[in-house]
Amino acid sequence: MTSKRAAPPEAKKDEAVELPTPVNPQTRMVTVYIMGKRAVVPEHATIMRAIEYTGVQIIRGAGCREGFCGACGTLYRLPGDYRIHTGLACTTLVKDGMSLTQIPAVPMEKAIYDLEQIEATVDTIKKYYPAIFRCVSCNTCTKTCPQGLQVMDYVNAAMRGDIAEVMDLSFDCVSCGLCALRCPAEIVQHKVGILCRRLYGRYLRKESRELDVRIDEIRNGVYDAEYAEMMAMAKEALSEQYYARDIEA
């Protein structure tokens, strides 16, 4: 096996290539205001790590810690800047003078529906989330979204009943709820997003015929004999078959 290797890494070791070594910059500290209280934290900390650095055990306001779950929505302001900024505490870095507060929950009502009983039409959206038609196109939601989504565009698409477009534009929504909190028309954008995504997956998808075939095969016991045979095989025989199997390119 080894002989076939194109370039064994060991060969490189002897070459006189010297790569530079890392320099260790000193950890600088910055001052932040966590719900108004001053704290000095490392400059390279995320907002979440900064809060923990002060000794707080976060109970509400942290979930995945990697930007997927939306538990950690945060509002902040920076010195000399009148604007309210938003971010996910787990992926946003602190800045000197940052004044912040986490918003661990946004009050709202989720519509209750039976997916099997509804249709992928604008009427469905209208029935469950009538407030979307109050949108004044102010674009605040889009400016708010920490995921950088075109939120206003998907709200507008929902008003047109363009469910595929809502699906596409809201695909990466983490449901942090910050857009809903800032919306002057009191719309719950992300709830409209999940409704439309489910409608798309259920009713507007392209059908996968090969999947039907496979499900039927299994139901009809096409693989039963082969399963039985393999389950009865000794480890050695299985191992042999495994290492001899062909691999799709």
């Binding site: 997916l115 695909f171 489910r198 997956g201 259920r202 998808r205 059908e207 090969e210 999947l211």
Partner: peptide
Amino acid sequence: LENLGVIWDKMDDGSM
């Protein structure tokens, strides 16, 4: 899952 509304990546002909 797709009957519950999960959106799978598909090819143009609809196959997975």
